[in-house]
Every structure is written in structure tokens, then in C-alpha cells.
Amino acid sequence: MSSVMTSAGAVARHRLFWPIVALAVLLLACVLKSNTFLDITVRDGHLYGGPIDIVRRSSVLLLVALGMTLVIATRGIDLSVGAVMAIAGAVALSQIAASDNPESLAVVLSAIGSAVLVCLLIGVFNGFLVAVVGIQPIIATLVIMTAGRGIAMLITGGQITTVNSAPYKTIATGYWLGLPVAALIAGFFFVAMALITRRTALGVLIESVGINPVASRLAGVRARTIIWTVYILCAFFACIAGFIRSSDIMAADANNAGLFIELDAILAVVIGGTSLAGGKFSLVGTLVGVLVITTLTFSVTILGIPANAVSLFKALVVILVCLLQSPVVRHKLRARRRATAPAPVEVPA
């Protein structure tokens, strides 16, 4: 019996316990409101249903949060991801719109390649400001956050650029093997980064730089290179997320594409247990945090919560999860459980 209690206590102390509980509660609330929410149906060889919608809509936030996790692990922050998404969509759709054959796969791939190159240069710029110039990450990335949408506006000529291209639309609305292409793209990069950071030395190097950059540099770790790498990766993932978002509406909206997504990404990373102080990070935790945020958005709609109270509802849920994860709160809960636990019965010899 004691071993069972010990195992249960270990599970409850895990950093992902409360986020998973929150996710389960949100799913339960949706099921109680709509009995068919978890039903998955097959139509024309494609999977449809509430869980599939959650997975598909999580793809954009997962990509952004993936890069944000690596940046936060180095004690940084990247506020430019939303602007990078806007720039990616603006470059890609403007090039497709200017072509004579927007239905051509070669044209679409060329436009995507151009957008990726531009976004990688933005990542290099962010990394240069942080790693070489020594500017605080929140200030360095604020430059692109502020100027990035202006750059996107210049690219689109101040207009919302729309195109009609079936290959490009497939990125967000297409299906492959019955699953949404957007979810497959996000899943591929998630698995790839999980393998790279845990099967190679990259993850350890990122954590060492986040824990103590000076000691890491003295130990022979190229801290500047690591910091540069994570900002380039963050910009790259934001670029892919920008393709999915612009493909979903087939338009490049410089003002609204990726607006405030950096805040949801930071929340997802924090909910997943990665500390803003840097060091240890968890990509699986980030995935759970993204699912919590996305399911929370679904819950707001399904439960019929008024639109003007959506932000407050999301804030309350996030605050509750973060409080339950807090070391101080968890210590007090453990102390209370120990105080209320029955005293062991002494068996006479």
C-alpha cells in the first residue's frame, strides 16, 4: 500500500501532472457540453472530428512554441515570431501573386524558399544582437517585432495580398494519409527537434548555456554559436508557421498574421514546465502546453462563453495551472498532506 502511495505521490509531483490534468478537465468539459466532441469520422478517406481539429489548429502554435522553447532555455526570449510569420506570408504570397502561373509547384517552392531565406536572415540578425552585441533578448527581438510588420506592409504594398494557388493551399487545408498536412508538418519538426536535442549534444549545450553561459564558455562551449543557432531555429519555425497561417486564409495580412502569438507561445512553454530562467527544457512539456492552450480556445467556443470574457477565462485557467506548478504551492500542498496523513500504527512486539 505504501509503495502505491509513494508512486502516486511521485506522479503528482511530476511537472507535467497539472498541465495534463488541466487538459483532461477541458476535454471533459467539452464532452459534457457536446457528446460527439471526441468522435472521429472518416469522410473521403480523411479524418474529421474534435481531436483532429485540435491537432490541426495546434500546428501553428506548436511550431512557434518549439523555437521559443529553445530560446527560453538559453535565458532568452523572442518577441519577433509574430512579425516573422507576417513577413513569411508576405514574401511567399507576393511572389506567387506576381508569377504568371500561381498553380505551378515550382513557383510555390521558389516562393517558399525565398521566404525561408529572408526569415533565416532575421534569425541571424536577432542572434547577432543578442550573442555579439550583447543586447538584452527582449529588447533585441522587440526591434523586429516593431519593424517586422512594417517590412511586411512594404512587401505587400500596404494591401492584403490574396492568391489562388492549390499547391500552396495544401499546406494548411490538405490531407495526407487521412491526416491534416499542417499537423504532419508540425509533427515532423517536433519529432526531428526532439531527436536532435536528446540524441545529440545540442540539447546539453543549450541547457549548459542557459544555466551558466560564462562557465560554459570557459569549459569550451561556443556559447555565442549556440545562442545564434537557437534564434535562427526560432525564426525558421516561425516562418513555417507563417506559411500555414497564410495558406489557411490564402492571404498575407501584415497587420494580423501571427498577432500576439508570441504570448501564447511563451505561455505554452511555461505551462510545459520550462523555466524562464533558462537551463532545463522539455519539448514534450511544450507540446502539452500547446494542447492546453488550443483546447482552451475550443472550450471557450463550445461552452458558449461570451467573446468579451474569453481573455479573462484563458487567463484564469493559465494562472491556475501555473500556480499548481509553482514550487512554493507544491511544497505547501505536500506539507499539508503530510500533516493530515494518519500516524503509522505501532505493532507491539
Rank of each mutant, 00 (worst) to 15 (best):
Y48L: 13
S275K: 12
A166Q: 13
L61E: 04
E262V: 02
C234F: 03
K33W: 06
T200P: 05
W18K: 08
V292R: 07
W18A: 15
L23P: 01
G45A: 07
P327Y: 02
I226F: 01
T41Y: 08
M250S: 15
A22H: 06
G272E: 00
P327I: 01
R217Y: 06
A172E: 08
F243H: 04
V221K: 10
L62D: 03
V270E: 00
T141Y: 07
S299E: 08
V118W: 05
V204S: 09
I40F: 01
I72Q: 13
S3I: 06
S2D: 14
V292F: 11
K280T: 07
I261E: 01
F260M: 13
S34G: 09
S165N: 10
T200Q: 10
L259M: 09
Q95D: 10
A192M: 14
K332Q: 10
G279Q: 12
I240F: 08
G304V: 01
V321K: 04
E207R: 15
L324I: 13
G50T: 03
V71W: 04
Q325G: 15
T156F: 04
S326A: 12
A186H: 08
A65P: 02
A265F: 04
I138S: 11
I122A: 05
V270P: 04
G134M: 07
I302D: 00
I160L: 08
M153C: 04
V163A: 01
T173L: 14
A223S: 15
A92T: 14
T225E: 10
L47W: 14
L93H: 10
S246T: 03
S208F: 03
I302M: 05
G242F: 05
T41G: 06
G123Q: 00
